[in-house]
Write a protein that binds this DNA or RNA. Structure first.
Lengths: 236, 236
DNA sequence: CAGGGTGTTTGCGATAGCGCAAAACGGGCC
DNA sequence: GGCCCGTTTTGCGCTATCGCAAACACCCTG
């Protein structure tokens, strides 16, 4: 297993406030692993034995209901942590993590957590902020699901994905990992059919360009307008 | 301002792992205050200058959209903390807190937080768990909003309220604070009209008894059945 | 005890979005 | 180069739920 260069991760929010010379000690406790596209990293309900930092690739965290329905909790971008169950006192992972692209992660055993935060309180503080931010994002999502129609929610979801994982092209912004209509439906609380109809519509208006598991925002500003427009103020 | 007896709060999750003799020191940094029914404790967007522990009463945390729509983030029960913005690194309160009943709270200035968690790391850990639990509850709520119909969501919401703040009566469980149909609508992502219709239906089936800002679950088990039933498996 | 105001109930029409089904598409694999 | 499979598109009918409006009920106040 190749050693991870501290300079590659020193700037990450997780390590803010950790002295560079200490960082090596933190990394020594971790191992790295590669997960090919479409492999599970951990399963919902499994014992939370590790926590993770994504170095390369993209990971989808999804939650499944007893009846088999799924929602996408979030997409993890490089530099973000995931599988923090133990930090919040959960013994089992509350969701399933799947690599949607070939991905490389750092893995710490949960047993290292108490020692880490004792030696490096900044890590605990940073994690607290991360969890807090996710809580606020969740609330935003609930707010949107409560007050907006599907089209607006899809617009917001795409804009967030573009911001988090967008690759700038000269003719727009491309979501930088494979994502299906079904995935977007599971992020916005609708069906793949409705998402497909919406994207088709947008495509014919030149707002997006899309294909199999691929979406390019051709007119991000136009989508912002859609996202923010009051539903009953629109033209016919 | 009356001194708060440590024995009244020693058992709260927030103080788990804090030695009783240290508790007094923690409480010395707080002041207590009383908020009459229907007064705001803090407003969304205001500077987060304090964090709170509810001693008596009930508090509603609600978030408002730019266009004036509201959702209820949660109801705070006695013993719970709220207004933790600063713990998660937010400079402003992300929601408005309003006493829905005459309420008594302990108030710490945010400036006390760094000192507190340094001297009593258990408090930081407990807060982390609290925030983590709320995050999971948010995800559950998103899951429900994505996959269940309104009637089931209302059922779940009432069951949660009953669990958190239910008063046992011989003929059922009463939600122990004033709550309107509108409030329930804002918890479940629907309209007060739909909630009213649902409750009327349940009332005629003997599942609940309700009135002005008052709800009694007469048949909690029956409501559990509703909450869990697969929508398309029900009888007429 | 009457008045006013907030919360609740209910009817009715409108519709966004679902659900099902089938066809078209695309692309990788052999 | 053809085949197979997962993804996407699209049509069509259906209905859960909204939105508006009006009538009510209840409580607190004066």
């Amino acid at each position: 297993m190749a050693k991870v260069d501290t300079s590659l991760v020193a700037h990450l929010p997780l390590f803010a406030g950790v002295k560079p010379e200490d960082l090596e000690e933190v990394l020594r406790e971790a191992r790295s692993a590669r997960y090919p596209k479409n492999t599970a990293i951990f399963e919902q309900g499994a014992d939370a034995q590790s926590f993770f930092l994504l170095l390369h690739g993209h990971v989808r965290a999804a939650k499944t209901t007893p009846t088999g329905e799924q929602i996408v909790v979030r997409y993890v971008a490089p530099g973000e942590t995931f599988g923090l169950a133990m930090a919040i006192g959960a013994a089992h992972y509350p969701a399933t993590a799947m690599a949607v692209d070939d991905s490389v992660v750092l893995i710490w055993p949960v047993s290292a957590w108490p020692r880490l935060i004792e030696r490096f309180p900044a890590i605990a503080a940073n994690t607290m902020q991360t969890v807090g931010k996710r809580l606020q994002e969740s609330h935003t999502r609930i707010l949107e699901m409560s007050t907006q129609q599907v089209e607006q929610r899809v617009a917001h979801a795409l804009l967030r994905l573009a911001k988090q994982s967008g690759k700038k092209l000269d003719h727009g912004i491309e979501i930088d990992f494979p994502i299906s209509r079904q995935d977007i439906a599971q992020m916005t609380g609708t069906t793949l059919h409705t998402v497909s109809r919406i994207l088709s519509g947008w495509e014919s208006q030149g707002l997006v360009e899309s294909g199999r598991q691929r979406i390019i925002l051709r007119d991000p500003h136009g989508i912002v307008v859609l996202a923010e427009r009051n539903p009953d103020s629109g033209a016919a």
